[in-house]
């Protein structure tokens, strides 16, 4: 398999298959599949409270996924953290997915855990390239570095983040490597030339 063609291949196959939207015509041979969460208590509560803000509720392999619209993401998060009923006090992870070619290409993914209820849920929100995602740093301090990492590697900007800088890559690096249109061989040659004094990295 030639190395150059790989990223494009992945993008192509990635674009039509969106795990967030079931029902796409893609044949599943075997194994698990997405199931709708209709009788889930949290989903019903969320739907009641935020109505249109909740796009969908599904589960995959018994892991519940709640897709939330971006403009009420922050309110949903406040509700999930502060309501004594759910008490999701532990933000496990913040990350993103890049569905290149979609109208809103990014999906920001949050994993929340409640130490009280021992339940793990996943919150997803779609975001366009220019859209600002509300930062949850004020709710969970963990989010600080995790959101910085998402900003660094995907270029998704968070509004209200106290210190939004690159974290893994150098601050003057160009490009966001985990985007699907960032080829794996692609590097910031100018940066490398300036800082590492290597003319050109071997391809």
């Amino acid at each position: 398999m030639s190395e150059e063609s790989k990223p494009e291949e992945v993008q192509k196959s990635a674009a039509p298959s969106k795990p967030a939207r079931p029902g796409r015509p893609r044949p599943i041979k075997r194994g698990p599949s997405y199931e709708d969460l209709d009788d889930d208590l949290l989903f019903r509560k969320l739907k009641e409270k935020f109505t249109d803000g909740i796009v969908s509720g599904q589960s995959f392999l018994d892991q519940p996924i709640y897709t939330v619209s971006l403009n009420c993401l922050y309110d949903v998060m406040i509700y999930l953290k502060d309501s004594p009923e759910w008490d999701f006090d532990y933000l496990v992870d913040v990350t993103a997915l890049d569905y290149l070619g979609d109208e809103k290409r990014f999906v920001v993914v949050y994993h929340l855990y409640s130490h009280k209820n021992r339940s793990l849920i996943r919150i997803k929100a779609r975001a366009g390239e220019e859209e600002l995602v509300p930062s949850v740093t004020s709710l969970w301090r963990t989010a600080n570095w995790l959101e910085r990492e998402v900003y660094d590697l995907f270029g998704i900007e968070f509004s209200g983040h106290p210190d939004l800088r690159r974290i893994l890559l150098p601050e003057d690096w160009h490009g966001h490597p985990l985007r699907k249109d960032y080829d794996i061989k692609l590097q910031d040659q100018a940066w490398i030339k300036q800082h590492l004094r290597i003319r050109k990295t071997p391809m």
Partner: peptide, 28 residues
């Protein structure tokens, strides 16, 4: 793997190590 996603969290010696794997049905 079929289209789907899974968060596999384990207790590594250092804490909760999670792998959030998203599959689009391709070999990668």
């Amino acid at each position: 793997p079929p289209v789907g996603e899974y968060y596999s969290g384990i207790e590594s010696p250092r804490g909760e190590l999670g792998y959030y794997i998203v599959s689009d049905g391709s070999p990668q």
